[in-house]
């Protein structure tokens, strides 16, 4: 009896989510999947057909794929390298009273629209920004805006808070007495960090990197503004294909390919990081 009613409650609780996901995620993806096998109608849009021609045409957007697959991992790595020491400082070094202030400062940028902040970077990196400053002290000919470097800077800036918080949480959870135990057993502070702190913070690192990486794979705004027309991601290619050239079937093929690439990378990554009996133990405790 009890079991039956609890399964009824479970169904009831999960129904809104299931309906939402079906209507707004699974169905649209199926539509895109169907479109990707179609043909381009004469006035633009979709004409029913079954052809692999759109997929055969993928190399035409190779640069977008290359940019995304280089800059998304690079951006994730750069953000991680900057975020980890910051998270470590916040979780383990700073006194509790100042910690709250500093944590708030990490979030403060979110109070302004992401679009406006990225626009601001256009000016900082543009001709009258940093390059002008460098010229002033004698370094000439530096171009930042519309280069991969500008996109990378934008990425690190935009995604740093997302990287900091999961790592901060996992570092803060590491019990002080574990570090003392390691010290007591003969491990120097550096070895203690490598053998205790770092492994125990891995779940947070893995989560943070995955979130940032997935979001970056679909990034559109930063390359559009800071990369000009020169550094574009798949996201930009999709906008272009769907809204400008109205080539829905090809756009669908590109979108489906992006989803497949992401699924493959993320599942490989999960298998690598969440090895059974490794990180699992940590998150269970």
């Amino acid at each position: 009896m009890a079991k039956k009613s609890s399964s009824y409650v479970t169904t009831l609780l999960l129904a809104p989510m299931a309906i939402w996901m079906t209507a707004l995620l699974i169905l649209p993806i199926l539509v895109v999947l169907v479109y990707s096998f179609g043909e381009l109608a004469e006035m633009g849009g979709y004409k029913p057909a079954f052809t692999l021609a759109q997929y055969a045409n993928l190399p035409a957007r190779l640069t977008a794929f290359k940019n995304t697959l280089v800059l998304a991992p690079a951006g994730t790595l750069a953000a991680f390298l900057i975020a980890y020491p910051l998270a470590y400082y916040l979780a383990r070094t700073v006194e509790p009273r100042r910690r709250m202030i500093l944590l708030t400062l990490v979030i403060v940028p979110f109070w302004t629209s992401f679009l406006i902040r990225t626009y601001a970077w256009m000016f900082i990196l543009g001709g009258r920004g940093i390059p002008a400053l460098l010229e002033f002290i004698g370094i000439e000919g530096v171009r930042l805006l519309n280069t991969p470097t500008a996109v990378l800077i934008g990425i690190v800036y935009g995604y740093l808070p997302l990287m900091v918080f999961p790592i901060f949480v996992s570092l803060e959870k590491v019990d002080e007495s574990l570090l003392e135990a390691s010290n007591d057993l003969g491990a120097s502070p550096v070895r203690t960090f490598l053998q205790v702190t770092l492994p125990l913070s891995l779940p947070g690192v893995a989560t943070a990197c995955m979130i940032v990486f997935i979001l970056l794979m679909g990034e559109f705004l930063i390359p559009a503004l800071l990369g000009g027309g020169k550094v574009f991601f798949i996201g930009n290619a999709l906008v272009d294909l769907f809204l400008q050239s109205r080539n829905w079937p090809f756009g669908s093929a590109v979108a489906i390919t992006l989803v497949v690439v992401m699924l493959v990378i993320v599942s490989l990554y999960m298998r690598m990081i969440f090895k059974p009996g490794k990180t699992q133990d940590v998150s269970m405790i």
Partner: peptide
């Protein structure tokens, strides 16, 4: 002399086993 160079070892009140190691 830092803790990691001393010839003493401690059993902690809450044991402090390393959760990521068997």
């Amino acid at each position: 002399i830092p803790a990691y160079k001393r010839p003493v070892n401690m059993v902690f009140q809450h044991y402090a086993p390393f959760p990521h190691l068997n």
